[in-house]
């Protein structure tokens, strides 16, 4: 669509919508489907060095206030994932972003190195997962740990990579800058925000893991602030994939005004039909009405 083209590092996107990680992206067929449905780029489900079964169900619920999930990063492991990414790169006709996750700094480097064999256009590093060496604290919970992950990935691959951050911190801008200083080429913000839901009859948390991550419309204001803070911190050059609560063209316009170059779309795949095409045509309509010709003209007035 005219005027919606954008660029992330060296990747040219026909439009700024990106299928978010963990959303209908477990195999090549699904990634190709999202591309056919209009996504400008697609991100695979995070893969780890060893296979993971994830948590028991319930792993996801759609509550009146928000969506909540604790899948537990289930994935067949990087060995099997290489084949899926290869097939997706061959078939998708849009850039493929391979998401990786690990539970030690060292393993981040190993997974990055292995997944590079599949030659994805970009790697996304899910740093919002627990570090087993630090009592389960998230890597992206502090600038030092996040930077150490970025450095390990930088040394392991020549493929551009984005660091995906958690909003559950008071200083996301500082953390993003530390990642960039350590070699990150882009930032994806945000992953889900910690949350919990209770069933009063069962007298338990609904998610089997008790805690999970909030996604969907409830996350939008949190994501807007995170992206705004990150843009202020990292300056104009570093691409940001703004993710969290995007389901309409106006959500996407607002996210880009707050500082994003592209928008990740996750939970909204079930909130409306044809979400990628819908978001794009609504963006175009707004831009036409207001006389914007290019995405970079969408800026906040301060």
């Amino acid at each position: 669509m005219m005027g919606l083209e954008t660029q992330l590092c060296k990747m040219k996107l026909r439009n700024p919508t990106v299928l978010a990680s963990g959303i209908r992206g477990n195999n090549a067929h699904l990634l190709i489907r999202a591309a056919k449905e209009g996504a400008g780029a697609v991100t695979s489900k995070s893969c780890s060095l060893a296979p993971r079964e994830g948590h028991n169900n319930p792993t996801m619920i759609n509550t009146p206030e928000a969506m909540l999930n604790a899948i537990g990063l289930s994935n067949p492991g990087v060995e099997e994932e290489i084949g899926e990414i290869r097939a997706a790169v061959m078939g998708a006709k849009v850039p493929v972003i391979a998401s990786i996750v690990a539970f030690s700094i060292e393993d981040f480097g190993k997974v990055a190195e292995r997944i590079s064999e599949a030659a994805p256009h970009m790697i996304e590093v899910d740093a919002a997962c627990p570090n087993t060496h630090r009592e389960g604290r998230m890597f992206s919970a502090c600038a030092q740990d996040a930077a150490a992950v970025a450095k390990a990935v930088e040394e392991a691959t020549n493929i551009p990579f984005s660091m995906k951050l958690s909003p559950d911190v008071p200083n996301i801008g500082e953390i993003a800058q530390a990642c960039v200083d350590a070699g990150a080429d882009a930032i994806t913000a945000i992953n889900t925000m910690g949350g919990m839901y209770v069933d009063a009859y069962a007298r338990r948390a609904v998610l089997h893991n008790w805690f999970g991550g909030v996604s969907g419309p409830a996350l939008k204001p949190v994501a807007l602030k995170a992206v705004y803070n990150i843009r202020k911190a990292v300056g104009p050059k570093i691409p940001i994939i703004g993710t969290g609560g995007i389901s309409t063209g106006m959500d996407a316009i607002e996210m880009i005004m707050a500082g994003a170059n592209a928008v990740g779309i996750g939970s909204a795949v079930v909130l409306r039909k044809n979400v990628f095409k819908g978001v794009c045509s609504e963006m175009s309509a707004f831009m036409k009405e207001k006389g914007y010709k290019r995405l970079y003209e969408l800026k906040l007035e301060e």
Binding site: I23, R24, N26, N57, M60, S74
Partner: peptide, 8 residues
């Protein structure tokens, strides 16, 4: 897992 079309 999710049963509602999100996780894939």
């Amino acid at each position: 897992k999710c049963g509602i079309g999100v996780c894939g």
